[in-house]
Amino acid sequence: MKPKKTVFVTVGTTSFDALVQVASSRQLCQQFQALGYSKVLLQIGRGVYEPEPVSKRGFTVEYYRYKDSIAEDIKNASLIISHAGAGSVLESLGAGKPLIVVINQLLMGNHQMELAYQLYLDGHLLYATCCNLLEVLSELDTAKLKPFPPGDTSKFSNFLDKAMGLS
């Protein structure tokens, strides 16, 4: 049996109905299937829009609202589509997963956007809006995304040791 390739969509603690709606739309689901994904799992927070669960011919769409930790779902996913929240972004990149960040235009100017945008500029993730998610997805080349290694905490401890006169 072919391993199930899952797309994990996460909106964080608030809601992002536009993303849930577009990511579970027929058009996107066709695209996911064409790319070889067999499951779409959505974490929808306190969104009003509830996607219609699908389960047919080896393709499923499921959703839930919250979990204590989404680490397991990130680990099991082959592609992550996330809101711009720093937590989800860092968790996804930390797990070494290809990531598309979809920006919520209603939240423009929020500082949370800064990090996602910078990481997009540095080539660690893809950046999309709800309107062009389909295009970004069809041009997706996960091999082009650069890994995002954790920062070097020893630079901090070395600096602090010097500043405190310990070394």
Binding site: A86, L90, H111, Q112, E114, L115, Y117, Q118, G151, F156, F159, L160, A163, M164
Partner: peptide, 30 residues
């Protein structure tokens, strides 16, 4: 008392409000 403030990695273009205050009062703002 020495004070060291480390701005979050999430801050790329703007420093947080506490960071702006601590820029003047911390021994080191990283």
């Amino acid at each position: 008392v020495q004070q060291v403030y480390v701005e979050s990695m999430c801050r790329v273009q703007t420093v947080s409000l506490s960071g702006q205050i601590m820029y003047y009062f911390a021994d080191h703002l990283i």
